[in-house]
Design a protein around this nucleic acid. Structure first.
Length: 593
RNA sequence: CGGGAUGUAGCUCAGCCUGGCUAGAGCACCUGGUUUGGGACCAGGAAGUCGCAGGUUCAAAUCCUGUCAUCCCGACCA
């Protein structure tokens, strides 16, 4: 059914913000009657919200089908042993919803699928036997279950959500890369068609390395993830992954005018903040010394006081397999003090320094003695760093990127923006095919594990991200592509036969042309109808009745434009169709090839 | 799992500190009337286990204990 009468529909709009909702997407989707909460992390999609979701799904299906991916549907109910075989029962831990049920006289241990790598790999292990069957990509749109320790942000982070998940199977890394690129482009088109601002960012890449993983982020103030972004070079990466353009600095002679270092009593100072308050200095004047265990050996990492360690970078700089924060006993052994008082002067273990360390002169550091710090500590005089053949300090990129850092692409500076993860593409490699024994025979009839890629889109999150970013003081402002209805006809004067006749005529002509139409036939004052139409975000409002009709005109008001226009009654249907067509073209203009 | 806050009508909230008559208001809802271009007005009506359990008291929405739920910050997040 293309059209609905508002009076017959289920659109429970709210005048006030429900007290539990704090962020725009949550408030607006509740107020606009798109969703209702069942419990923390579980929401009902009401007719409007569901229509919007269905439109998003249709876009996803079109674009996925265009890549040659095949839609299917897998069970949410899955046997736990699949997860045991891939080690993900451990890895997911409490996030994996699993339970025993009784079947006749035995127990069956089941999980609700948090994602479907196991199920699809098991399927393909039975089906694929030859390289001739490859490559193949399958996908589904399905409810996923994850026991979030703390569901929050309304519909942005829930324990049950719709995901489009796709899996590709290959006999070569080249073939995987080809499919990866195709799906990457499809994702760009999907998000663009939905009207979402998005940013593909480099993410931690796992086993294959290189450009093996991208997250698609929707920049939004309430996004949970932090993205490092350079406007000038378009470099974008997530915080764990982001490089910086910082480099090593030349060794400089020690300034003889600098005062000698000084041991200060700093009792009960457990944090950088507390130390700064006590000494009346800034975190940027501090060097913090973090003790790690790299492959079991203690190593100290020197960072400026305001910076955050990046364990991935530290591990790579050290060439270590494993890296963890050292325990208190190890810290005591190398620094002769409890945690919090280590420093580079007289430390009894190897240390590596971040690129910013040579600039912190003089510095405040831990004194390697309980309740003491050293001030006026000078690199090259009180402690030293290894030097390279080029006469530079041998420093490394060991920390998370911060706003203001130079871009790794040579020009521009990095900024930090928040984002909502709406999609992820990932070159999996053979992780699942090896553990689930999914193999094919190559040209030489030799068994090889399937090479896999996986590709996810959070369907609800597209809508939530749109609601989070596309609104004004009156409510949602959605594009034609995903709005629950393209057009709302607001009638003024319910018992006016002239209005009824025109509505019926427009209804006939517009629905015949395939326009999805909501007719607000409620016996309400105009103000109520306008407020509601704005709130639920319908792109085009057609007002029939009142002053306009007396002048032989109907009024068209685009939700995204400030002013209404009037058109003659006689040609109203055609004018509406023309404007819709024009607007669709405008929306499609920024969709990439 | 640590910290904070809140639970009173479908929604937003008052009342609680300092216990005391029949638990209130606005919106929404029902009836009648007047209205009709940006969330109308008048009159009347219906609607509540005061989250739940226990305790203190002559008396508990109010004080105490426990518990559940929701939200926020943090930890966690293939």
């Amino acid at each position: 059914m293309l059209l609905v009468r508002w009076s017959q529909s289920f659109i429970p709009t709210l005048k006030e913000n429900p007290s539990d909702a704090e962020i725009p997407s949550h408030q607006l989707m509740l107020r606009a009657g798109y969703v209702r909460q069942l419990m923390a992390g579980a929401y009902t999609y009401l007719p409007l919200g569901w229509r919007s979701i269905r439109k998003i799904e249709a876009i996803i299906r079109e674009e996925m089908d265009a890549t040659g991916a095949l839609e299917m549907f897998m069970p949410a109910l899955q046997p736990i042993d699949l997860f045991e075989r891939t080690g993900r029962k451990e890895a997911f831990g409490n996030v994996l919803i699993n339970f025993n049920i009784r079947r006749q006289n035995h127990q069956v241990h089941l999980a609700l699928g948090p994602t479907h790598e196991e199920v699809v790999t098991d399927l393909m292990s039975r089906h694929i036997s030859s390289y001739r069957q490859l490559p193949m990509t399958v996908y589904q749109i399905q409810t996923k279950f994850r026991n979030e320790e703390r569901p929050r942000f309304g519909v942005l982070r829930t324990s049950e959500f719709l995901m489009k998940d796709a899996y590709s199977f290959h006999s070569s890394v080249e073939s995987l890369s080809e499919t990866y690129q195709k799906i990457y482009r499809a994702y760009c088109r999907i998000f663009a068609r939905c009207g979402l601002e998005y940013l593909p960012v480099e993410a931690e890449s796992g086993p294959i390395g290189g450009d093996a993983s991208h997250e698609f982020m929707a920049p939004a103030a309430n996004g949970e993830d932090q993205i490092v972004f350079c406007r000038k070079t378009r470099y974008a990466a997530n915080l764990e992954r982001a490089e910086t353009g910082r480099v090593r600095s030349q060794v400089k002679p020690v300034d003889p005018a600098l005062p000698a270092s000084e041991k200060l009593h700093t009792p009960n100072v457990g944090s950088i903040d507390a130390l700064c308050r006590l000494l009346n200095c800034q975190p940027t004047q501090l060097i913090k010394t973090l003790i790690f265990l790299a492959d079991g050996e203690p190593v100290a990492v020197l960072l400026r006081g305001d910076h955050e360690a990046n364990e991935g970078k530290i591990r790579r700089a050290l060439g270590a397999k494993t890296l963890e924060m050292a325990d208190a006993a190890t810290v005591f052994k190398v620094s002769s003090a409890p945690i919090g008082f280590a420093g580079p002067v007289g430390l009894k273990c190897r240390f590596v320094a971040d690129h910013d360390i040579p600039q912190v002169v003089p510095a405040v550091v831990g004194a390697n003695a309980e309740d003491y710090h050293l001030a006026n500590v000078v690199l090259g005089r009180d402690f030293d760093l290894p030097r390279t053949a080029e006469g530079e300090y041998e420093t490394f990129d060991l920390r998370n990127a911060a706003a203001g850092d130079p871009s790794p692409r040579g020009e521009g500076t990095l900024e930090l923006v928040h984002g909502i993860e709406v999609g992820h593409v990932f070159k999996l490699g053979t992780k699942y095919s090896v553990s689930l024994n999914a193999t094919y025979d190559d040209e030489a009839a030799t068994r090889q594990p399937l090479i896999m890629g996986c590709y996810g889109i959070g369907v609800n999150r597209i809508l939530a991200s749109m609601a989070e970013t596309k609104f004004d003081a009156n409510g949602l402002v959605l594009p034609l592509s995903i709005a629950p209805y393209s057009v709302v006809i607001s009638t003024i004067g319910v018992n006016d036969p002239e209005v009824d006749q025109l509505v019926n005529q427009l209804e006939k002509e517009l629905t015949a042309a395939g326009v999805d139409l909501l007719i607000d036939d409620r016996d309400q004052r105009p103000g109520v109808k306008f407020k509601d139409a704005d709130l639920i975000g319908i792109p085009l409002r057609v007002v029939i009745g009142g002053k306009g009709l007396k002048e032989g005109q109907v009024e068209l008001k685009w939700r995204h434009l400030p002013e209404a226009t009037k058109i003659p009654v006689a040609s109203a249907a055609q004018a509406i169709l023309d404007q819709l067509a024009t607007r669709r073209k405008e929306e499609a203009a920024h969709v990439p090839e």
